[in-house]
């Protein structure tokens, strides 16, 4: 049973008179609980694809289905709700709200979900424990290392129990040891909670961890291999 279906999707960017086809009739399925890496050279369309899956952007042609639902039939507000409740995001950097502490950053998304206070506190504590940052709970992002920041970002992405986590180059700013720890953590979550992870990455280590590797080039899929 696929959680995401990408059906011959194209995305064209216009810059002045020239238009640029960032994605060209891409079709892909993602199953529940998959741990997938999207690879490919810079400019091949990885981020673009991830944004379309995450309903941050709309395709020019084709359709994206999330859990059987056609994303193009949703309005802005429904998309925001979809992201809030069913998708988690992790970006390369500047993921966190600088004025909020680690715990508050995680708490804030639960607040947006209107989770009650008691449950929120418990969930925040649990997830901080899970990512090993209980002692950094009341530190602000600028007091955390890059790796710790990314772990908070992962915690924030996962705390809402989403079906899919989309991560755009989460390890790009990290050294390999820290990157590995982060990936191990995410793999763990993938295994225990059956959350689907989709990465856009250049990092060979991420590709190693992935169960399935999709390679893109010039907006097309050149290979799609399961390991």
């Amino acid at each position: 049973m696929e959680i995401i279906r990408v059906d011959s999707v194209s995305k064209v960017y216009h810059q002045g008179r020239v238009s640029f086809r960032a994605l060209d009739k891409v079709s892909l399925d993602f199953k529940k609980g998959e741990f997938v890496a999207l690879a490919g050279p810079s400019g091949s369309g990885k981020t673009t694809l991830l944004n379309l899956i995450g309903s941050l952007d709309v395709p020019d042609e084709g359709e994206v289905f999330f859990d059987q639902k056609n994303l193009s039939e949703l309005n802005d507000s429904e998309r925001a709700d979809l992201r809030l409740h069913r998708i988690g995001f992790v970006f390369q950097a500047y993921n966190l709200i600088p004025v909020l502490t680690a715990a508050e950053n995680i708490d804030y998304i639960l607040l947006l979900q209107k989770v009650d206070k008691f449950l929120r506190t418990r969930k925040v504590n649990d997830i901080l424990q899970e990512v090993g940052l209980t002692d950094k709970a009341s530190n602000r992002p600028d007091e955390l290392s890059g790796g710790q920041q990314q772990r908070v970002a992962v915690a924030r992405a996962i705390v809402t129990d989403p079906q899919v986590v989309l991560a755009d180059e989460p390890t790009a700013n990290l050294d390999s040891t820290t990157g590995r720890k982060l990936l191990e953590m995410m793999q763990q979550m993938n295994r225990t909670k059956k959350v689907t992870f989709i990465f856009a990455t250049h990092d060979p280590m991420v590709m190693d961890f992935a169960d399935r590797l999709v390679s893109l080039k010039d907006g097309r899929i050149v290979s799609d291999t399961a390991k």
């Binding site: 809030l84 998708i87 988690g88 970006f91 500047y94 947006l112 924030r156």
Partner: peptide, 16 residues
């Protein structure tokens, strides 16, 4: 702007 981008990605509505 960038911060708003992140907030909107994680599902915050513009109205908020």
């Amino acid at each position: 702007k960038k911060e708003f981008g992140v907030l909107m990605s994680i599902g915050m509505k513009p109205r908020r």
